[in-house]
Simulated scan of single mutants.
Amino acid sequence: MYGNLMPRSVIPIEKGERNIHKFEETANQPPPAEMLCPLCSRDNRCAVAAGDNPASCWCVNAVFPSGLLERLPEALRDKVCICMSCQQSFLRESGE
């Protein structure tokens, strides 16, 4: 019915005595920042950010050496997840 339009948010707009709702396009919207790896900007596959059970996340049993975590800006540490690709690349490059 709406083609590529998906209701991301509904913004009420007053017009006369009734509300008309404006739907924003989401087809070309980037994913939320918490879904992206802060190092490569690709999908980090974070179960928590996706609303899934945290215990199901790939990173639960993964190793994140301090050298890898130091690559993150201080403001992002403990706030966004590094993707598996960046984690594995670091482990290969560092020999850890």
Rank of each mutant, 00 (worst) to 15 (best):
L68P: 04
R77A: 11
G67V: 06
E24W: 06
R71V: 01
P38R: 07
G16Q: 09
C57F: 04
P7A: 14
L76E: 15
P38Y: 04
F23D: 06
L36F: 00
C83Q: 02
Q87S: 11
A49R: 01
E17Q: 11
F90A: 04
R71A: 03
P7M: 12
A49F: 00
S66R: 10
V60I: 08
A33M: 09
E25Q: 10
P32F: 05
I11T: 12
V60Y: 00
Q29M: 08
N19D: 11
V10K: 14
F23S: 04
N19I: 15
G3T: 13
G51K: 01
D52Y: 07
E96H: 11
K22D: 06
E93R: 12
P65W: 00
L76K: 14
A62M: 05
R45T: 07
L5C: 09
P38T: 05
C83S: 06
C37N: 01
E34L: 03
S66Y: 02
C40A: 04
V80L: 11
N4V: 11
M6D: 14
G95P: 01
M1P: 06
S41K: 15
E24L: 15
S94I: 01
M6Y: 12
P65T: 01
L68S: 07
K15A: 12
N53W: 01
L72R: 08
A50R: 05
K15Y: 12
A55S: 11
C81F: 06
K79Y: 05
N19M: 11
K79N: 10
V80N: 04
R71I: 03
C46E: 08
D78G: 15
E74I: 13
C81A: 10
G51D: 02
Q88F: 03
E96P: 00
P54E: 04
V48R: 11
C81S: 08
P31K: 13
R92P: 00
E14A: 12
C46D: 15
L76W: 13
P32S: 08
Q88H: 05
